[in-house]
Every structure is written in C-alpha cells, then in structure tokens.
C-alpha cells in the first residue's frame, strides 16, 4: 500500500517535471487510432486501387499499375463521377442558399426560449431514421403522391409535367427523376449545412453589419462584402459536410431517382459480386481526391482567413 502510493507519487512527480512526457502519453491513443486504424485502412484502400483485374479470368493481379485508374475514364464510369460531382455541387449550393436565411435568423433573432426551439427544429430530422426519411420522401414525390396531388388540386399539373419533360432533370415522376434525388439529398443533409453556418454567423459581431450600413452599404452589399466573407468558414464547413456526404451516399439514389449510378453505388456494385475490388477502390479514392482539391481551393480563395 505504502509502496504503491510512493510509486504513484513518483510517477506524478516525474510527469510534473517533464510535461512533454505527459503530453506524449495523452496524445498516444488518438495518434495510434489515427495512424493505424484510420490511415492504415486508407492506405489499404489506396493500395487496392493500384492493382488491376485480369480481363479474362477476373482474377485480381497484385502488380502495381495505373490501369484501374484508367478505367475510371471510360465513358460509363466517367459519367458516374461527373453525375455525382454535379449532384454534390447542386446539393451544396442549394443547401447553402436555403440554409443561410435559416441560420441567419437563428443567429440574429432567435433569443431565449426560441434558441432551443430552433435547434430542435433543425435537429429533429436527424433523430428519425435516415431510411424513414428517404422512404417518406419517396411517397411524397410519387406519381400518386402528395406533391402531385397538390399540383393537381391547384390545377398546375401542366407545370409539373412540363418540368418533368425536361431531359436529364425530369422523368416519369418526381420520385424517379434526378430532381427527386436532389430534393431528398437536400432535405437529408440540410442540418449539416445550417448548424456550422449558424455557429459562424453567431460569431459575427452585430456592429460589423451596422458599421457596413453606416458606411453606406446597402443590405445586399453588406451581405456580399461583410456577412458572407465573415460567415464563409461556416459555409465552407457546412459545404464540406453536404458535399462529401452526397459524394459518398449510395442509399438515396437507389430509393429515389432515375437508377443512374452514383459513386457510392458504383463502389458497392464493383466490390460486390463483380469482385472488381481494384475498380471499387479507385472509385472510392475519387471523393478523397475531390475533397482534397476542394479544400485546397477553399484555402486558396481565403475561406479560412477569418478563422
């Protein structure tokens, strides 16, 4: 007992005398986690993507090659990448446009008891199962669903039909159109845009906006030159969420949309019965590269200057 406490004392003395040792001990577990579990699996994925599949036997050849990455540029595969990137971009922009006023309202005007109500309202969709939400949307968007019924009741079916007749974004009904996929993505990821934006807007001092108006800036100029740049870190953080979540999702386009594949689904299909792990890995690397590029661009554009 005595020895034990003596030992503990000597340990804490040592740690006190050598604060770096304490930091090292504290940092070790997360470093191990990040290094081995996280980066390790990432490199395993990367390694797979440099192998290739034999054309005839379908056997994976464990020789380093860029052939699999070349496969990504085959028109049908490249389509998938473009389609996913366009969708992720559209969802991100849409979420930013819809989320900004909500976040702004919450940051500026929601006080006292309204604050928790706002958080509740924004977070509530996150509580229910992702699948329930997506399936509910399928019902809303269906040919015989609520939205169609509303259009019919307002005698606006012609408008909806005209919209659905537009190639690429239209389709037989909203639930089997790219627009439907977009709407569901938008709904599901919106909280991930609103919350960081709200946090960053809250940090913008009110006097900044008053100063801008005082100096003669009209409201849209204040938005453009002061509010947006100062809220940009939040917008960027939110867009990282919406963009990467859309890039990786493979459930929503499977339930709502035109059945045309997105990257997540391609990964899923190729690693499944096809057994084309290298191509699946190469596809999985695409979002990583895209996100790295996006962050680099955001940094270059000064998105993190106001941090």
């Amino acid at each position: 007992m005595k020895m034990q406490s003596a030992m503990l004392t000597s340990i804490s003395d040592t740690l006190w005398r050598k604060p770096n040792l304490l930091i090292l001990l504290l940092i070790l577990p997360p470093a191990l986690w990040l290094g081995i579990i996280y980066l390790g699996s990432l490199f395993a994925l990367l390694a797979q993507s440099f192998f290739s599949i034999d054309e005839f036997s379908g056997v994976i050849q464990y020789e380093l090659t860029l052939k699999t990455y070349g496969e990504l540029f085959r028109p049908s595969n490249f389509d998938i990448i473009i389609r996913t990137v366009v969708m992720a971009t559209a969802v991100t922009i849409g979420a930013a446009i819809i989320g900004f006023p909500v976040a702004y309202f919450a940051a500026r005007y929601a006080q006292g008891k309204w604050k928790p109500i706002f958080y509740l309202g924004v977070m509530m969709p996150l509580w229910s199962s992702y699948l329930v939400k997506v399936y509910s949307w399928k019902l809303i968007l269906a040919k015989e669903g609520i939205l169609n019924w509303i259009f019919e009741s307002l005698h606006l079916s012609w408008l909806l039909n005209a919209y659905l007749a537009i190639p690429v974004i239209g389709g037989y009904s909203l639930s089997v159109s790219a627009t439907g996929t977009f709407l569901v993505f938008l709904y599901v990821w919106l909280p991930f845009m609103i919350l960081p934006m709200q946090a960053s807007l809250e940090r913008v001092p009110h006097t900044m906006l008053e100063a801008s108006g005082d100096l003669g800036a009209r409201p849209y100029q204040t938005f453009r030159h002061v509010l947006l740049p100062l809220a940009l870190p939040g917008v960027i953080a939110g867009s990282i969420f919406t963009f990467s979540l859309t890039l990786g999702d493979y459930i929503i386009p499977q339930i709502v949309g035109s059945s045309r594949r997105f990257i997540g689904q391609a990964v899923y299909a190729y690693q499944g019965t096809a057994g084309n792990i290298p191509l699946a890995a190469a596809f999985a690397v695409v979002p990583i590269i895209l996100m790295a590029f996006y962050l680099w661009l955001a940094k270059r554009k000064g998105a993190f200057d106001a941090l």
């Binding site: 001092p205 006097t207 900044m208 008053e210 100063a211 801008s212 005082d214 002061v226 740049p229 100062l230 000064g302 200057d305 106001a306």
Partner: peptide, 11 residues
C-alpha cells in the same frame, strides 16, 4: 459612426 469596439472588418 466610430464604434466603441471600432467594428473594423477583420477580413
């Protein structure tokens, strides 16, 4: 106006 906290634009 000259504000109490100056309200200079940090960016």
């Amino acid at each position: 106006t000259v504000f109490q906290d100056y309200a200079l634009f940090p960016h």
